[in-house]
Amino acid sequence: MKISDIATLPTKYGIFKIQSFKENDKEHLAIFTEKLPEIPYIRIHSECLTGDALGSLKCDCGDQLAFALKTINEHGGIVLYLRQEGRGIGLFNKVNAYALQDKGLDTVEANHQLGFEADMRDFSIVEKILKHFGIKQIKLLTNNPKKEFAFKNIKVVERIPVKVEPNPYNENYLKTKKEKLGHKL
Results as ranks from 00 to 15, higher is better:
G104Q: 02
I89K: 14
L65K: 05
A99Y: 07
V79F: 09
L80A: 05
L65M: 09
L105W: 01
L69K: 08
A66D: 01
G76Y: 09
G62C: 08
Q64T: 11
V79G: 05
A97W: 06
K103I: 00
T107K: 04
C61M: 05
Y98I: 01
C61W: 04
R87V: 15
I72Q: 03
G90H: 09
D102A: 08
E74D: 13
E74C: 04
A110V: 02
L80Y: 04
C61E: 09
C61D: 07
F92L: 15
V79N: 06
V95G: 02
V79R: 05
G62K: 06
L105H: 01
A97K: 08
G88V: 11
V108G: 10
G76T: 13
L80I: 09
E74R: 12
G86R: 13
E109M: 00
D102Q: 02
G90Y: 04
L80P: 04
K70S: 15
G62I: 10
A110F: 01
G62R: 07
H112M: 08
G77K: 09
K103M: 03
I78H: 11
F67A: 08
N96S: 13
L100H: 03
Q64N: 08
A110S: 07
G86F: 12
A97H: 05
L105M: 07
G77L: 10
D106I: 03
K70D: 14
R87D: 15
Q84F: 07
H75T: 15
F92Y: 15
G62E: 07
H75C: 14
L100F: 06
G76S: 13
Y98N: 01
A110C: 04
A97V: 06
L105I: 00
A99C: 01
N93F: 06
G77V: 06
D102K: 02
Y98G: 01
C61A: 10
E85T: 11
T71A: 12
D63P: 01
H75E: 15
E109S: 00
T71E: 14
I72R: 03
R87A: 15
K103N: 05
N111R: 07
L65Y: 04
N111E: 08
L69E: 07
E74A: 13
A66G: 00
N96M: 11
